[in-house]
């Protein structure tokens, strides 16, 4: 994984050679913890393949006694709007991401490479806003959207996140380290300031932008709080909101279908994580390691 040391393992490796028991002991502890960590995922998967009768017997079997195949998956997709939830999740997460990138990049560039009156004030506001979670402006935003008649829409679900101060902060760091001489060369070559930003500077920050994209998509795909407040209709629900509502209605009667749904809704991000671990970890932990 991204942050783990490679080179540093060697000095202790030398001493470990004398103590192979240390390695074995560590493996045993880690294996036990790994089993515990994976257990909920295992339960989720295995339950989605179990027959209902099995669930209510007082014994726990590691494998389903009677394999139900994709029954619950089909049931989940056909009887509940799971696919709609996912479509909404994609639309909302991508819509937010596009707006965040379009607004944050120019602002970050101005903060990183231009001197202007009010720059320090803007930067201070950005840093202040970094610490304010969505729950703080939620009430007035709700009232505002209600007054405009915009509640229960994609727009309502996205608009509070159109500005990401975190993106501004992150891109500013990245742009600041972009060499001034290349920007000057581009000016001499005749590029406009707008072209310099998008054609020259932004391509140099693709890793930071990609990491932010992972962070943003994960955050908004998983968000329950804001959709819970502004979304009412089933056809606009995001995966977490849909699942919460769906689980509520079913109220434990049909665990198989519930677990199948949970699996379907969790799978996309997990797949992305498995395929691009480095970038994913970098993106998700970006808030911590700067």
């Amino acid at each position: 994984m991204a942050a783990a040391p490679n080179h540093r393992a060697s000095p202790r490796r030398a001493s470990r050679r004398r103590l192979p028991w240390g390695q074995i002991g560590t493996h045993l502890v880690l294996l036990l913890l790994a089993v515990l960590f994976l257990f909920p995922f295992y339960v989720m998967l295995v339950t989605s393949f179990r027959s209902p009768s099995e669930l209510f017997t007082p014994e726990f079997h590691l494998l389903p006694q009677e394999f139900t195949g994709l029954k619950y998956y089909i049931e989940s997709i056909t009887t509940s709007p799971v696919l709609t939830f996912m479509k909404n999740g994609v639309i909302i997460a991508l819509g937010i991401l596009v707006m965040q990138i379009l607004t944050a990049i120019p602002c970050a560039y101005a903060l990183a490479k231009f001197e202007f009156r009010g720059r320090n004030l803007l930067l201070a506001l950005v840093i202040f806003a970094l610490t304010v979670p969505i729950q703080v402006p939620a009430l007035p935003l709700y009232l505002g959207l209600n007054a405009l008649g915009l509640l229960d829409s994609y727009f309502a679900a996205m608009v509070p996140f159109f500005l990401s101060v975190f993106a501004i902060f992150l891109f500013r760091q990245s742009f600041k380290s972009y060499p001034d001489e290349i920007i000057q060369a581009a000016r001499l070559d005749g590029l406009s300031e707008w072209a310099i930003l998008w054609r020259i500077v932004v391509p140099g920050s693709i890793p930071a932008i990609a990491a932010f994209a992972v962070f943003s998509i994960t955050t908004h795909w998983n968000d329950l709080y804001w959709p819970l407040i502004v979304i009412r209709s089933n056809e606009l629900m995001t995966p977490p909101l849909g699942l919460a509502t769906f689980a509520d209605v079913e109220s434990g009667e049909n665990y198989g279908a519930l677990m199948a749904t949970a699996t379907i809704l969790t799978a996309p991000l997990m797949l992305v994580f498995m395929l691009a671990q480095r970038q994913f970890v970098r993106g998700v932990t970006m808030t911590g390691v700067k």
Binding site: P40, F41, V43, M44, L241, L243, M259, A262, L265, T266
Partner: peptide, 13 residues
């Protein structure tokens, strides 16, 4: 892995 999992889905589990 749990970091990447959707909290609501895992809460259900």
């Amino acid at each position: 892995l749990p970091v990447t999992a959707t909290v609501v889905a895992m809460a259900t589990v």
